[in-house]
Every structure is written in structure tokens, then in C-alpha cells.
Amino acid sequence: MHIERIDLNLFVIFERIYAEGSLTRASEQLNLTQPALSHALARLRTVVNDPLFVRQGGRMVPTPAAHKLIRYVKPSLTAIKQGLGEIEDFDPTSSRKRIHIGWPHRFESVMLPRLMPVIEAGAPGVELSCSLLGRYELEEKLSTGAIDLALNVLRPTGPDIRSRLILRSDLAVVARKGHPGIRKTLSMNSYMAHKHVLVTGSSNGRGFEDFELAAHGLKRDISLRCTDYHSACLVVSKTNLLLTIMSPIAELAVQGSDIELHRFPLPDKTVDLYLYWHAMSDNDPAIQWMIGLIEEQVSADASIKAVNKPKPARKPEKSSTAKSSARTGAQ
């Protein structure tokens, strides 16, 4: 294959389709008609001898060959833009930028109510696109440009992934009002005597709290695994099951409901949340603006333990990673 015979604009189109997962959105981003975009995709398919994308419902799902190709195309396009000085100054008041964030479902209710009022008031043209992020997808999706930022607990990552600790959250235990097994405070004996709900995207994974309990030689009885906090809280309100979640999520859930909050019976146990991005975005003003906005809103919120003076962008330390390796399966 001779690269001089290939129209390199095809890779620009490929990258947009990959990032957007939609011919319609990609055509809007590139100011091309859908027929023109489809024709370009057909040409590239012929060049690489692979369909690259398969339509599933309303999405264009990448093939394995597309996943491999984007690892080379995305950083190459970024380098070219930087070399030509085409990464323009970012003005949030007038930008139409779409920023993609991936995170586990439990973080949406914590972050979006803090971010969207500020974006609506000061950056009305900026679109925030959020998607669920599986436990092993963080590095791949940042590397391929499928997402711009990720929010998660501490994960082991490669050298091109930046991370920054942005907040610490207490754990709370949710129980129905008038729970017969709980007096004024929730003791460890009472906590361990009851069955529990675990919100997770995994059929057999453990939560952060399970690793903390295991460190004290304890294993709780999980009666229900589900994928949604709202459903979990409804179940708790009608049963004697207990639910352990981050305090900011719990405080939202308890409003106007038949549930109440108790302190997690292991003192001083917190969940550390990290913001992740790829080194390719170090000089992207839009992504750096969003990083600053997230840190600013977290720091300004008295209901959570923000890290007011985060360390510079870095990789998690080896010691921390090793210490938390057992926790990387927590959902």
C-alpha cells in the first residue's frame, strides 16, 4: 500500500466517525453532506479492505481493524494540527465544542448537577457528551479519542495517560426509615448482620467497601446486584437490605424518600476519585478548560471533600497503584 496514493482526508473523516459513532453527527462536525461522507467511507473501506464500521441500531460500531487503525490516526492528526498551529484559542462563550466524558454510572448524579449550570451560563454552545465507562475501557477509549476525559477511582495506566486526584468522598449506608435492626447509629455488628445491595456493572465484582471490609477480615452478604442507584434505593426503602454508596449520591437519593443515611461503620474510609486524560490533550485548551471547570466546581462544593490543591498532572504512583491493585475490580 502506497500512502502517496491515498487521500489523507479520508483519515480525518474516519476519525470523526469513530469519535461520534454516527454519520449524521460526523457530517455536521465536518460540514459535509451525508452522501459525501458515505462515499468517503466507502473509499477508505476499499483501501484498507475492511468495513471499519458496522451499523447497529443508530450507531456505527467500529470493527477490530478500526480500533487498531485509530491508535495511529488519532495521534497523527493531533500532531499535524499542533504543527500547523490549528489548535485555536478556546473561547467557551462562543465555542461549539463537544467534549466527551466517560465514567461509571454512579458519578453522573454527583458531577452533572454541578457542571451543567455553569456550562449553560458561561459556555452555552459547548456540548457535554457523557457515556458509561467499563472498568477496563479507560485507557483504550482515551487513547483512541473515543472520550476526552474520564472520571474513576485509581486505575493502573500507561505512560501516556495523565491523572489528577480531584475529590475524596465519604461512604454512607442507606437504609429504610424505621429499620428494625438499626438504632441511633449503625454498628459494624448490625451492618454485617444484614444483607446488602451492590450497584455494579459486573455480575461478580466487588465494591470499594468490600475491599475495605476484607482488609478487616470481614465479608458481607450481598443479596442483590443491580446497575442503577435509583432502583437500589427503591428496593432499600421497601426491604431491610442496606446499600453503601458515596455520600454525595446518598444525599441526593434521600431527598423526599423513605430512606435515611448512616455512617459507614469503618471510620475515615473515603473513595478517591481521579480525573484522567490523554497526553495528546495536554495542549488542547478546550479539554484543559473542562479539567479546570470540574476542579473548580468540586472545590466550591462544601458537601464533598474536594482536593483544593491538586498535584500537577501525573500518573498514579507505583506504591499507590500496587496498594490499590486489588481495588481495580471495584465498580
Rank of each mutant, 00 (worst) to 15 (best):
R5Y: 13
V12I: 13
E15F: 06
E15L: 12
Y18M: 12
Y18G: 07
E20I: 10
G21I: 14
S22F: 12
S22M: 12
L23W: 11
A26K: 14
A26G: 13
A26H: 14
Q29P: 09
L30R: 10
N31R: 13
N31T: 00
A42S: 15
A42R: 15
R43D: 10
R43A: 08
R45A: 12
R45C: 10
V47T: 14
V47Q: 15
V48Y: 14
Q56G: 12
G57T: 15
M60S: 15
P62N: 07
A65S: 14
A66D: 07
K68H: 13
Y72E: 02
S76T: 11
T78C: 09
A79Y: 08
I80H: 12
I80N: 08
Q82M: 14
G85N: 13
E86N: 07
D89W: 11
F90W: 08
F90T: 03
F90K: 10
D91H: 12
D91L: 11
D91M: 09
R98Q: 09
G102P: 04
W103A: 06
H105S: 13
P113K: 02
L115P: 03
V118M: 06
E120Y: 04
A121F: 06
P124W: 06
P124T: 04
V126T: 02
L132N: 13
L132E: 13
E139A: 13
T144D: 13
I147H: 08
A150I: 05
L151W: 01
V153L: 05
L154H: 02
R155V: 00
P156K: 10
P156Y: 08
P156V: 01
P159S: 01
S163Y: 11
S163P: 02
L165A: 04
L171G: 00
A172Q: 06
V174I: 15
A175K: 06
R176H: 12
K177C: 11
S187R: 12
N189T: 15
M192K: 11
N204W: 14
N204P: 02
D210A: 03
F211D: 01
A214E: 01
H216I: 03
L218E: 01
R220Q: 05
R220N: 00
L224F: 08
R225S: 01
R225T: 01
T227S: 14
Y229D: 01
C233Y: 09
V235N: 11
K238T: 11
L241H: 11
T244Y: 04
T244I: 03
T244N: 00
I245S: 00
I249D: 02
A250I: 01
E251R: 09
V254K: 15
L261K: 01
F264S: 00
V271F: 01
D272R: 14
Y274A: 03
S281G: 06
S281Q: 14
D284C: 07
D284H: 11
A286G: 02
I287M: 13
Q288R: 09
G292R: 09
E295Y: 08
V298C: 04
V298G: 04
A302D: 10
K309G: 10
R314A: 07
S320P: 03
S320H: 05
S320C: 05
T321K: 07
S324R: 10
